[in-house]
């Protein structure tokens, strides 16, 4: 498909712009912490960029934990599906 026919979200130059906008928003939320009073009361949440690093680290932690758990629990997608009902048909 040519670039002109693609919708705005899928065009290469727009994807770049969207990434830049997202990164700016992320930086703004970190910098906003300097000016906004936090309501929590444990001390640590007042440290610079707390929600950014806490969010990132716990996010990575949960993905790693899920993947490790998956090694034991995960089954192939058609494990229970001898009846092949995975694709629902509609009329």
């Amino acid at each position: 498909m040519s670039e002109e026919k693609k919708r705005w979200l899928l065009r290469k130059e727009n994807i770049r712009t969207i990434w830049i906008i997202f990164i700016v928003i992320l930086l703004a939320t970190v910098l906003a912490g300097l000016f906004v009073h936090q309501h929590e009361s444990f001390g640590i949440e007042d440290s610079f960029g707390f929600f950014a690093w806490y969010g990132f680290i716990t996010c990575v932690g949960m993905v790693v934990f899920a993947k490790l758990l998956g090694l034991f629990l995960k089954r192939p997608e058609n494990y229970y599906q001898e009846d092949n009902s995975n694709e629902v048909e509609h009329d």
Binding site: E40, F42, F51, A52, Y54, G55, F56, T58, C59, M62
Partner: peptide, 15 residues
């Protein structure tokens, strides 16, 4: 309830 708050903040924060 610091542990509860940390547990609630974990999924809210970014993931």
């Amino acid at each position: 309830l610091i542990y509860v708050w940390f547990a609630l903040a974990m999924p809210v924060s970014s993931f």
